[in-house]
Design a protein around this nucleic acid. Sequence first.
DNA 1: AACCAGGAGACAT
DNA 2: ATGTCTCATGGT
Length: 219
Amino acid sequence: MATGDGEDRGIRGLYDLLVDAFEIEEWWPADTDFEMMVGAVLTQNTAWTNVETSLSALRDTGLLDPAALLACPQDVLADLIRPSGSYNQKAGYLRALASWAIEKGDAARLMSTAELRDDLMGVRGVGPETADDILLYVYGRPVFIFDAYARRLLKAAGFPVATTYEATRRLLAPAVDEAGLTASEHGRLHGLIVAAGKHARAHGWESILAGGGERAAAP
DNA sequence: AACCAGGAGACAT
DNA sequence: ATGTCTCATGGT
C-alpha cells in the first residue's frame, strides 16, 4: 500500500480529515425519537429544507406522535407532508412506522444491532439507509451510513466500493470495525460527509482529500 | 430547463 | 443478484 491512496488512512483517518475540513451545525436536530424517525422517511430522495416544512406542519397539528398519526386519515396526512414529495407513498410509510413504534415500545432498545436492523427493514418504507439512520440517531448504535455521498467519497479515497448500499456495507464492514468510532463520532461523520459531498459537487473530492486545504463552512 | 435532493418498493430479468 | 420504473415537490 505504498500507493498513497486514501485507504491507507482508514475510516478513522477520513473522519479526522473531515473534522478539520468542515464545520457543521448540530446534525439531525429533533425533539423526540419519533420525530427523528419521521424525518428519516421524509428525507428519502428529498432536500432537508422540504422535510423541515413537513415536520413543522406535523408538529403544528400534533401528529408527531405515533398514536395521533395513526388516528389521522391518510389523505389528510399526505397533504401535510406534500412538500417532501412522494407524499402518498410516504404517508403510508409513516403509518407503518407509527405502528412499529407502538408495537415495539422500548423492547427495541434491548435488541442487538443486527436484530434491530432486520426488524426495522421489515417496516414498509424503511430500507437499508433509513434503518441505519434510525439505528444511529435513535438507538445510538455505532453504524456507518453508506449513502451515495459516502460511497463517492470512499471511492475517491481508494476504498473498494460496490454499486449498492448493502453490497458496499458488506464489503467495508471490516474497515468500519477497525476504525472503532463511537456512535457519537459516527453521527458527526455522517453529517460531515454530507457537507463534504455538497462541497465536492462544486469543487471535486480531490480538493478535500488533499487535506490541509481550505476550511469550508456548511450552509 | 434539466437535474438533483440526507431512497425504497414492485416487478422483471 | 442486478436493472428499470414509479413516486413527486422544490431549489439550482
